[in-house]
Amino acid sequence: MSVPDLAALPLLAGLPAADLAQVASFMTRLEVSPGTRVFVEGESGDRLCLVESGRLEATIRMPDGGERTLGHLEAGATAGEIALLTGGRRTATVTALTPTRGWIIDGRAFQALRLDPRRGAIALMRRLGMLALSRLRVRYEHVAAEIGGLPSTEPVAPGEPVPQGALGLDYLCSLLCFVGFEQPSYVAEVLRGVPSRSVARGDLVLREGARPESLILVARGAIEVTVRHTTASRRMRLAGPGRLLGYSGMLDDGMSPVAARARERTLMFEFPRDRVLELLEDPAPAARRLAAAVYEDIARAVRQAERPMASTTVASGRGGSRFRRGLPGLEREPA
C-alpha cells in the first residue's frame, strides 16, 4: 500500500508522511467480494476495518431469528474500533454489498500499536480514541434531545481531600484501568502528584454543560453518569473502581454532555486537564499505557451507552428513602 492511499482516509487525514509510513506498518490490505462477512456478530472483535471503496451493510440478529439492518458503511468509514479497543465481542455483522477495498488492523498489530512510542502510532491511537469519543458524544446528545428539558444547575460538591498514599499501590495496581501496566512503578508514575478526594453518596462531581477541569478515576465506590434534566433522567453508565470519566468535554474541547454523581461514597483521583493532555502525547511507557486505558474506557462507555437497557422510572429523591418507617436505632460499633 502507498502512503498517499492512506492519506485519503478521513481517520488519517493530515498526518505527516513520516507518521503515515509508521501507521502503514500496522495495516494489511482488505479486498472482498459481495456477500463476504467482514465481521460476524458475537465473534471476538479482533480487528478494525478502514473502508477505501465499496459499500457494506451492518445487521444484528433479532430474537425471532431474523435480521435487522443497522446502517451502511461506505468509503472513508471506520468499523470495528469499539470492539478492538475494548477487546469485546462484535455487536453486529458487517457484510460487503459490493466489491470492497480497505485496510485492516488486526488484534496483534493493535497490541503493538497501542504501546508504540513513535509519533505516528501515538497519533493513530489518539484518533481512534477521538472517533470513539465523538460516537459517545453523539449518543449522549441524542439521549438529551429525547429527554428534553434543561440540565440541573446544582453546583459540584467540594468533597474532602484524601492524603497521598491513602490507597496502597497494590490495590491501585489491581484497578481495571491499570491492568495493562506490567510494573507497579508505571502506576506510581502516572499517579504522582495527582490529587484525590472523597465525596459522599449523592454528591455531584461533574455538571452537565460545564467544561470538565479534570479526568476522574474512580478508586473506590461508584459514580453514576447520567443525562438528568428537569423532565427526566437516563443513566448512561455506572463507573466503578478503575473506570474513568470526564473525557467528554475535556478531550473534545467542549462542554460535558453528561452529569456525574456519586452513587456510593467514593474516593477518586482527579487528573488535571494539562496533565492528561501531556500524558496522552508522551511516548514514555507509563504514559502510553495510560493513554491506551483512557481510549479503552471511552470505548467501554460507548458500549454501555448504546447497550439495550430497560428504561426506568426515576426515584423521587436522593439521600434518603421514601419508605423509611423509623426503624429502631442500633448501637453503632466503634470505627
Partner: peptide, 14 residues
Amino acid sequence: SKSHAGWFEVPEYS
C-alpha cells in the same frame, strides 16, 4: 441466549 438478542439489561439500583 448467547447472542443476547432481545434481552435488555436492567440498570443497577433498580
